[in-house]
């Protein structure tokens, strides 16, 4: 790497004189060194100005790069989980903790009788739907890859139904840790930027007719059949969400006609 020697040649001060100024700014001097240096700065306006400039640089750098709270878009898996049950468990742990620090507390306990996948879908909506930079891991531009990847991870064919009839276009999708393995989330968006997600996860406990989960501004409509749980989350009103869910269910090979309202 090239060192800009030319600039140090321009400065009268030797490196040995400058280093303590930095150490003062960083609190790396002993008390004795510190007092001696402060004493010296009283008679050396140029050095005092340097210290002030260095401090301003620090403040400016911290202002330039604020600590962001938007950690929820990261999803990590252990790569060598030989002593764990599976990569998804670790991923789930990490994501769960992220959710725990990201989401309002009232979302976490959940209601009685709701399957975990519906709650996870609801949480995942709350985390990813507002995400501006990384709403999805793989965008619809690579739709074929997206579907084959998610199908491979969920170990069954996963498709993203068309919701164009409701004004929603597919944005892309991501892999998430589900209750008992990987889960998929597809993200849709309409022309006003409103988002809808479809969460798909293995769920073999029982079949569930359409039900609703309501948290704050968003709703999640969920159902389960053929060993899979599905959850649609969005801010549409209830009748519309039910209608979208019925269409999605049919498109995904389920029998929405069996739902008794």
């Amino acid at each position: 790497m090239n060192e800009p020697r030319d600039t140090t040649a321009n400065t009268p001060d030797s490196a040995d004189e400058l280093r303590p100024l930095s150490a003062l700014v960083d609190g790396e001097l002993s008390d004795a060194e510190r007092s001696a240096l402060l004493e010296r700065l009283g008679h050396d306006p140029a050095a005092a100005a340097r210290v002030a400039h260095y401090r301003s640089q620090n403040t400016a750098l911290r202002r330039l790069f604020p600590l962001a709270g938007e950690t929820a878009s990261l999803f990590v898996q252990r790569r060598t989980p030989w002593w764990q049950l599976g990569a998804a468990i670790a991923g789930g742990l990490a994501l769960g903790l992220m959710l725990a620090i990201t989401l309002p507390a009232q979302l976490l306990p959940g209601g009685f009788g709701q399957p975990a996948f519906a709650q996870r879908a609801d949480l995942a909506y709350a985390v990813y739907a507002p995400e501006r930079r990384h709403p999805v891991e793989v965008t619809v531009r690579e739709e074929a890859h997206l579907l084959s990847w998610l199908s491979a991870r969920l170990k069954r064919a996963v498709t993203a139904p068309s919701l164009g009839e409701y004004g929603y276009a597919l944005v892309g999708g991501r892999l998430l840790p589900g209750e008992s393995g990987p889960a998929a989330q597809f993200m849709y968006q309409n022309s006003t930027g409103k988002r809808l997600t479809l969460y798909i996860s293995p769920y073999s406990s029982r079949e569930i007719s359409l039900r609703l989960l309501h948290n704050g501004a968003s709703r999640t409509a969920y159902w389960a059949n053929h060993g899979m749980g599905y959850a649609l989350s969005g801010t549409d009103n209830e009748p519309r969400l039910r209608a979208i869910a019925a269409d999605a269910c049919t498109a995904l090979g389920g029998d929405a006609g069996a739902w008794s309202g």
Partner: peptide, 30 residues
């Protein structure tokens, strides 16, 4: 310590001496 000191001094020069930042014709700090 020496890298840090050089970095801060370089920053100071770039920020206080406009000439140091001028790059007529050739980019000096790739």
């Amino acid at each position: 310590m020496s890298r840090l000191s050089r970095a801060r001094e370089r920053m100071r020069i770039l920020l206080t001496e406009p000439a140091a930042d001028a790059t007529p014709g050739r980019p000096p700090l790739k």
